[in-house]
Structure formats: structure tokens, C-alpha cells
Design a protein around this nucleic acid. Structure first.
Lengths: 335, 335
DNA sequence: CTGTTAGCGCATTCAC
DNA sequence: GTGAATGCGCTAACAG
């Protein structure tokens, strides 16, 4: 493969390579007849221009990169789906990189991409990332960069997020309305804006109902076993009447612990969680979720990235796009 | 970005571009002192060789492609995870393409990749794909190609699969052991080897127990609503005592219909399904699943692809690798 | 409307 | 141990 090239087509048709090139790109300065002849032969031979040569020549790769913490998570896979749809429509290629929540991997990946391999990139930053020079470098070099969901506040680049604080506020209020007075907030240990936004919504709702005193915050990690241990401890010592999980993982771990300790949901404990898991409706009991419009986030992030790549300029309202999440009330938070 | 190049480094150090190139690639014909000087400057300036230029020159892209039907499915996202791990370790880049079970998209994607953009590719074919010239072309051109899970039997390329027939046999036997006599097999409408393998395991188990007469086979599609309608019809008219879902989607749809029709699982109907959804254990009732080692499949597929890329030759036992799936018995199939 | 020429940045041959 | 020259395949400037 990668065998037939412009020169060969040219020889075959007694034309020059540049004429072939122009004909295939539908240049107006080539006669229709020639175009037809060229295209016919190109199709017949299955000619595809060498992408490395074009990229080198044109300094553009027709490729974008997506950098995410993990892919085994419905939120990110739905985002990928949205991105890929837009890219495929634009005839762009999509490189995928997983950081596994590891700052070093994230930095390594970004460094390797600093050389024209991609025309732009989209990232949801790792929850262990604490410094941002690797991202700052892209801003400085003016390489198109778009953040989604887990953004970096200190860098001036478009961000696509959801209304985390409001959604968390609504979810907490919902719990209060259902009679909960002692609501625990379970998140992941990280320094992400997303966690603090969700927590602030939670706190605001507590304050509104005069429940500030009852605040309980716990941060888990990646290991299920130690999360469950911590949750077990939390449930037995503090006896909250509700769990608000800022991440799906903590809700799953909560369900597991409740199963084990035979704690009835929702009678003894109500549970709500940020989650894009469709199967949440089939849980025992069905889990109330805050669903983020993940596909749309991916689609919008990609659309904005392409605008940046093509036009190099954005409208003010494209620099910060916020999508609403919505609360799906199910049995896990019913009275 | 994409600004600093060999020539600039050369000028800076009063060396030639070729020396820089060699020094950075640790050529033995460059003095240690020069190497050190060159590397120091390269690091300082954050030099990354232009990948298009190297790829053009060396006719290799350090990139592989993964073509899958969808990503919003735990099986495929786990496979991706395995692939990405191996690729990252090899310093390779991973392009991802989604076919959405569409033969035309699949063909378009494969055509575009026929030009050196990637050094090899891995594919799980779409369930609507009926002809295979687009794949045959790769075999002819000797571009490294590896199939996983949904393979094409007629093309001579390595395949990584699971023991679908045996796993289906075991799952069906398990249902029989639990007292089921009328087991319905629910798959997706397709011409995939995977479906027929699973079905043959199901049939073999029926035969073993003298239940051939009770065979019920139904094929669904992508639309949940019409699947549910078909399942409703099936349950009311044929009254099977078990559902064996060859794909997760059909199990989910079955659960939904049972919820709606208030059919008790497992009392009235037992359900088992191929699925890699970890949350299946939290379903109401917990769903018995046949779990495929998806991460390992991805890892193995990538490992074999790299062997093919690097060595161009495989051991006989690498041409057809089969991983065992395992049955996780849960309440949905209990007595 | 078409051909000639040049060069993108790199790795490799061949000189010395 | 290092430099000069060449060409990967393509596109674009320039020429006619």
C-alpha cells in the first residue's frame, strides 16, 4: 500500500504531477475533461494522496487530539462519540490519549503533540494535575485548544462545561425536599474546579435550608475497596440520611456498602449522583441521577475547536459555553 | 508551535542538520560530547521533530487505527483502554474511528486509511457489513491488520476473540440447570460470526438436554422501542421461562419490559446476558452476565499488531487467539 | 489551461 | 566524527 503516487498518475496520463494534484483538488484552472480523466484513473487505482507529504507541505494535519482521563466511563465515551461525529463529518482524524488521572502522563502527551502532529486539541484535565505549564505552552504558541468539563481556569482557552453548581444545588434541594437533614457530599480527592463547583452548589443548598451545621464532606480515591471502607465508616459513625455523590464511582460504592450492611435505600438513606449511566434506571433501587449532556458537550467542543482551527477567532459567547445538566428523580431519593 | 527545527538547532550549535539528527537518535558515529550539547539544547528549546517529515521520510507513521462500531459500550471502551495502554508504552499514537454499525462508514474509513497514515489497524467489524473487499485490500497490500471480537472469517488476518460458543453453551446449561425448559435466544440482526457462534452454543446446550423443540430465536435492532415491542410480544405469546441475551442491549430492553409488565425476575423469567457492565451487580435483580476479558483482548490485539508491524511475522498460535469469557451467576438466574 | 521549479523537515547516503 | 547532497510525495509560486 502507499504505492501509487502523483508522479505515477502523471506518467500514465502524460500530464505533470501538479496538474494531477490540481485536478484532484478540483482547481478551477483545470479543464473538465482533464479532471475527469484524472479522477477516473485515480479512482481506478485507488489513489489516496500521501497524508504525510500533504501535511508537511501544508503544515496542517487534518487531525485533532482528545485527551481524557479514562474511557471506561459513560460520560467520556459519550463525549468521544460527539467529537468523533463532528470530526468524521469534517473529514478530520481523531487521536485519543488516556491520562489515567496521571499528571505525568498528561504532560508527556501534551509535549509529544507540540510539533504539528495535530491541528488542535481538546482536553479534560486529570484530577491530579496541579501545574499547568504544559497547557500554557499551547496558549502561548497559539495552538487551538479547547477544555471540556474539567477545565483549567487559569488558562485563556474556550471551555465547555455544565452548570455543576446549579445542578448540585438542585439535587441537594431535592434531597432536602424529600426530608433529608443530614446530607453527605462524596467526591473524589482532587483539585478540580468541577469538584469545588459541585460542592459549592451543595453548600449553597444547605445554607438556604439552614443545614450548614450538618455538612459532611468526604473525598474518595480510585480504589474501590478503600472507598467502601470509608463509606462504611461514614455511614456507621455519622449516620447521614442522604448521600450526594459528585461522581458515579462513589454512588456505586455506596450501593455496594448498603447492600452489604443491609441499609435500605431510600428508606434509611437516599442517594443521588452525577452519572451518565443509562442503566441507573435498572438499579435496585433505581438511582436518581444528574445527567450531563455528554454527547452535546463533545459535539460543541469539537465544533468550537474547528472554528478556532479554521477561522482563528471566536465570538465572545463561544469562549465559555455552559450546558444544563438535568436531575432524573428515581426511587433512590423518593419518600 | 512547530517552529524550532533541525536547521535552527544546527545553526545555534555550529553543526550541520544531519549531525543534529544523528545525535538526537543516538547514532554511534557521533561523539558523546556533541550528543550532550545537542540534547541539552533540544531539551531547552523543547524541540520535537516534525512528525510529518519523519513519517514521509521513513514511511512509517508511529500511528495505529482502531475501528469500532461504537464507544458507548463497556466492551469496546475496555478494549480501547487495553489498546491505548500498549500503544502509549510503545510511543505510538492511536486514531479512533466509529462506524456506528454502518457498512458505508466502515468502507469510507478504511479507504481513507489506505495511504500510509497508519502503520496498522485493528477492527471489530460493523454488524451490517456484508462484503469485504475493503478489508481484503489490506491483506493484499500487506498492511498489518488485526481483527478482534467481530472478525471476518474469510480474510487471512490474526483474530482475537472469546470462546463465544462455549460461553453461550455454559450459560444455556446454567439456565437449564436452574430449571428452565423454554429458553429464548435474543440477538441483534446481523450476519456476524459472533452471533452465530453464540447461537450455536445455545443450540448445542438445548440439544444436549433434549430441548431442541423449544428453541426460540429473536433478532432485535438498534431501536430500543421496537425491541421492547418485540420482546413484549415474545413474552406474552410464547411465554419463555428464560431469556438468553447475546448482547447487553437486549437484556436491558428485557428488564424494561419486565418492569413494565410486572414480570418477576427470576421467578417468572430468568435472564442472562453477554455484558461487560460492572453495574450489572446492582441491577434489580442483579443480572447474571457472561463477561468478556475486554481489556485483555485490546491489549493482546495491540501486542500482536505491533509484532506484525515490527517483525512482519507471527507464530502460528498468534494468528488465532481465543480468550475465555466467564459466567457470573447472579440473582437473575437463581432458582 | 498546463508544466517547471522549489521547498516543507527530516533521515540517509556518500564523501572526507 | 562530521558535512553536503539527495529525495520522501506533495502543493504552490511562477511561467508560459
Amino acid at each position: 500500500m502507499d504505492n501509487v503516487n502523483l508522479k505515477q498518475l502523471a506518467k500514465e496520463l502524460n500530464l505533470s504531477a501538479s496538474t494531477i494534484s490540481r485536478a484532484l483538488r478540483d482547481s478551477h484552472e483545470i479543464s473538465q475533461e482533464t479532471k475527469d480523466r484524472v479522477k477516473a484513473l485515480a479512482t481506478k487505482l485507488g489513489f489516496q494522496p500521501n497524508p504525510h507529504a500533504s501535511s508537511l507541505r501544508q503544515s496542517k494535519s487534518k487531525t485533532i487530539a482528545v485527551i481524557i482521563p479514562e474511557i471506561e466511563n459513560n460520560f467520556f465515551s459519550q463525549v468521544m462519540n460527539g467529537i468523533e461525529d463532528v470530526a468524521q463529518q469534517k473529514s478530520y482524524h481523531v487521536l485519543i490519549y488516556l491520562t489515567h488521572e496521571d499528571e505525568k502522563r498528561e504532560k508527556d502527551i501534551l509535549n509529544v503533540l507540540r510539533n504539528g502532529r495535530v491541528d488542535g486539541l481538546m482536553i479534560s484535565i486529570s484530577n491530579t494535575t496541579t501545574s499547568f505549564e504544559h497547557l500554557e505552552a499551547y496558549r502561548v504558541a497559539e495552538v487551538p485548544l479547547v477544555f471540556f468539563d474539567r477545565v483549567c481556569e487559569s488558562i485563556d482557552a474556550p471551555r465547555i462545561t455544565t452548570d455543576d453548581a446549579e445542578a448540585a444545588f438542585k439535587a441537594t434541594e431535592h434531597l432536602v425536599k424529600m426530608g433529608c437533614r443530614k446530607i453527605a457530599f462524596l467526591s473524589m480527592a482532587d483539585g478540580l474546579s468541577i469538584s469545588s463547583r459541585r460542592r459549592s452548589g451543595y453548600l449553597k443548598a444547605l445554607a438556604k435550608s439552614g443545614l450548614e451545621e450538618n455538612e459532611i464532606t468526604m473525598a474518595g480515591g480510585t480504589d474501590d475497596e478503600s472507598n467502601r471502607r470509608a463509606i462504611r465508616e461514614l455511614l456507621t459513625t455519622q449516620a447521614p440520611d442522604a448521600i450526594f455523590a459528585a461522581v458515579e464511582k462513589m454512588a456505586i460504592n455506596t450501593y455496594q456498602v448498603c447492600q452489604e450492611l443491609k441499609i435500605d435505600i431510600p428508606e434509611k438513606l437516599k442517594v443521588v449522583s452525577f452519572s451518565n449511566l443509562a442503566a441507573a434506571a435498572l438499579f435496585d433501587p433505581p438511582l436518581s441521577t444528574i445527567v450531563q449532556p455528554a454527547y452535546e458537550i463533545g459535539k460543541e467542543a469539537a465544533t468550537i475547536l474547528f472554528k478556532l482551527i479554521e477561522k482563528r477567532v471566536l465570538l465572545p459567547n463561544e469562549k465559555k459555553v455552559t450546558f444544563p445538566s438535568h436531575l432524573v428523580e428515581r426511587k433512590s431519593t423518593s419518600k
